[in-house]
């Protein structure tokens, strides 16, 4: 699975993107955030307040309990501030 990070989320995690092997028990965005948070402090800090994070599955804004699968591209970022 390809993961992408933007804005301060990328700064805290210190990555713009990465490829991961999705474990079988990680079935939703929420599962993914919890699993990543257990890996190191960067993820834990970035995902600490889930209200401050938004996510997209295959470039479409998604919800916490939406299902994910191995071929998806999942992105994490703060609320948008364009214009």
């Amino acid at each position: 699975m390809k993961l992408k990070y933007f804005a301060w989320v990328a700064e805290i995690i210190e990555k713009r993107e990465e490829e991961i092997e999705l474990p079988d028990h990680v079935k939703t965005i929420d599962d993914l955030m919890n699993w990543l948070s257990d890996k190191n402090d960067g993820y834990r800090i970035a995902f600490n307040d889930k209200k401050k994070i938004k996510y997209a599955i295959n470039q479409t804004l998604s919800k916490e309990y939406d299902s994910i699968s191995r071929n998806d591209e999942v992105a994490f970022f703060p609320p948008m501030t364009g214009g």
């Binding site: 933007f6 804005a7 301060w8 997209a56 970022f77 703060p78 609320p79 948008m80 501030t81 364009g82 214009g83």
Partner: peptide, 21 residues
Amino acid sequence: KSEAAFWKKEIFLDKTKWVEQ
């Protein structure tokens, strides 16, 4: 401003700040 995937960061002389929605 609020739905397209852009994020602004202001770089001042003395600090940097991600703009909040």
